[in-house]
């Protein structure tokens, strides 16, 4: 993909107003604050940075292996490998693994809500309209990304598969032709930015301070996390018992896991997760 096209896509995808459901998700931040864990830091800025670090690392370990695998499936199909049926079947198996590894119901719920929102976003906001195709006949390829997304969306609607955020993100970005490394990077950036948006809503951080963190702190944090986790993959032959120590997806922050799962126990709350 041309770098100018990629840059333009990144502009569109990083729009904070996209209806992707991230504005109702705090990724466990609201519950963590409610459980008194911010009182352990000197100030709320440090506490927020610590949360972003822990949450980014945990998110990267549990989602990047799935994003990488699903991105590879869609990219492979669009470049002529296999059939649509086999690609969708493998995405379904990847989703089954993600479901079996995401043992926290609050995270599962948020993941499905945001995943489906991404698929809808593609169909309604990113798919090429038919009248554009007629003006640009060279783009009428044999294998159209719209086909992949539509077929996957139908499977999710039917309840054949889950429609989890990492897989849907991979399907969306691969369908748009975004490279895997861009897709991984943007995923982590959006996660960190969503946490900052949540902290503004929770009044643990002001909007200017959040912007400052985004530029000067989140950038190196995202880069460091990416360097640590970009090569993680789901285990080979993952349909069978994976009785080996591997570099696959894992839970790296059990405290965050417990507090995120306790989200619904809060007496009052403003987020869904």
């Amino acid at each position: 993909m041309e770098s100018s096209t990629e840059a333009y896509l990144l502009l569109l995808l990083s729009d904070g107003n996209l209806p992707t459901g991230s504005f109702v998700a705090s990724s466990g931040l609201e519950s963590l604050v409610k459980h008194g864990h911010f009182s352990r830091s000197w100030n709320e800025r440090d506490a927020t940075i610590n949360f972003i670090r822990d949450s980014l690392q945990s998110n990267a370990h549990s989602t990047l292996p799935f994003i990488s695998h699903a991105h590879g499936i869609v990219t492979g199909y669009l470049s002529g490998e296999g059939t649509l049926e086999s690609a969708l079947d493998e995405i379904k198996r990847v989703e089954a693994l993600y479901e079996s590894m995401t043992l926290n119901h609050v995270t599962r719920r948020a993941s499905k809500a945001q995943g489906v929102a991404l698929l809808t976003l593609f169909s309604k906001g990113f798919a090429q309209p038919s009248w554009v195709t007629t003006l640009q006949p060279e783009s009428a390829k044999e294998r159209r990304p719209e086909e992949v997304v539509d077929a996957f969306k139908t499977m999710v609607r039917r309840g054949d598969t889950h429609g989890h955020l990492p897989t849907c993100w991979a399907v969306l970005t691969a369908s748009l032709g975004l490279s895997l490394s861009r897709s991984q990077h943007l995923h982590l950036f959006l996660h960190a930015r969503a946490v900052l948006s949540a902290s503004i809503r929770l009044n643990t951080m002001g909007p200017y301070a959040a912007q400052q963190l985004l530029l000067h702190v989140v950038r190196p944090l995202v880069d460091a996390t990416l360097a640590e986790c970009q090569d993680l993959r789901i285990p080979p032959h993952f349909d069978k018992p994976t009785n080996e120590d591997d570099d696959g997806p894992a839970t790296t922050w059990p405290l965050g896991e417990i507090l995120a799962a306790r989200h619904d126990l809060q007496h009052s709350r403003i987020f869904n997760s």
């Binding site: 459980h35 008194g36 009182s39 352990r40 417990i258 306790r262 809060q266 007496h267």
Partner: peptide, 14 residues
């Protein structure tokens, strides 16, 4: 029912 805590609980479970 979790209300605002001033410090972490001695034990938490989910």
């Amino acid at each position: 029912h979790v209300f605002q805590q001033s410090e972490p609980l001695p034990l938490v479970w989910s």
